[in-house]
Design a protein around this nucleic acid. Sequence first.
DNA 1: ACGGAATCGGAGTCTCGACTCCGGTTAAAG
DNA 2: CTTTAACCGGAGTCGAGACTCCGATTCCGT
Lengths: 181, 181
Amino acid sequence: MRQDARENRERILAAAEEVFGAHGATGSTEEVARRAGVGIGTVFRHFPTKGGLIEAALLRHFDQLTARAHALAAEADPAVAWRVLVRAMIESGATKLALISVLTDGRGFPDSAAAAATRLKAAVSDALRRAQDVGAVRAPVTVEEVYLLIRGLAQASATTHPDPDTLDRAIDVVLTGLSTG
Amino acid sequence: MRQDARENRERILAAAEEVFGAHGATGSTEEVARRAGVGIGTVFRHFPTKGGLIEAALLRHFDQLTARAHALAAEADPAVAWRVLVRAMIESGATKLALISVLTDGRGFPDSAAAAATRLKAAVSDALRRAQDVGAVRAPVTVEEVYLLIRGLAQASATTHPDPDTLDRAIDVVLTGLSTG
DNA sequence: ACGGAATCGGAGTCTCGACTCCGGTTAAAG
DNA sequence: CTTTAACCGGAGTCGAGACTCCGATTCCGT
């Protein structure tokens, strides 16, 4: 692959995260092209289909979060790691997870993104288990409801951009509810 | 207004709630017409614009919830009323609040729906204050984060249909986080 | 510096969905 | 029963946006 091609691919992915994060699937490919500073033809050569573009953006996002989860697992104490991870997922998702709803309701994920999603969920499960082992999270909590809560806050703050304080307090409510209290 | 016209109007509104609830704003007007068992022309005579249709559905939904809130305020003790109201908003919203995201990101609400939304928010504020007065909810909590949490769970469960148990546990987490713990 | 292969750009095509129009139909008054 | 005004339906218009195509341009080995 030629160098300019690689650069363009990167710029397009970044633009896609912005656009789809802000407008959901409604965002137009043309807008992505404009923000990336390339022609629309270029976008479609790199990602032959709009779905493919979204998929690629998703995959990247999932992998970043998974890496983050692993890093946290290695470094911090489980209780802290848990809080930081949940926060990170909500806050980054606040800009980008709108993508998920798009794909989730459009039937199951495409294969590659599904694999990335699975890896991420495994990492989150791990972090949750550790947090429960040190008593930082109530034992009966499962990943399922945690995911629902995370997705919820992420989506809600992606659509209405709440001021940071409000979001922060909402996250605290969730974390408090999850901990032994 | 003729009788058949009134009946059709009702059927169209019901269909709109279904369709937009399930597919978000992406749902097509034609699909609404099909489910209502009327021609597409009829839909547009009653609601000259797609936005108008969504607005009408929203207004209806808001008013139902507001009525519910008032009923609860009159009957039950504040702590119970609070829990029931939050649950009701999330669960009903799970099918219909997708509408809100639609309008919310499409700039402010149209006037009539905005008024209904304001009334609802006032009712929720009231319920919250009462709950705080009896110590069922932590004092520093504001309506803003409550709304964010409610919207979040509603949207999340509208897009991924979680099994009822999971949703229930998620709601419990939120309620626990809101209460004094 | 040069040739050619790969890449870019954006005008043009095609599909889909919001919205219009008007002939056919139906509810209610006389 | 007739009239008539309102209502219904769905074919057709119009615009938006996904996707294609090919000439112009740019990179890289020689």
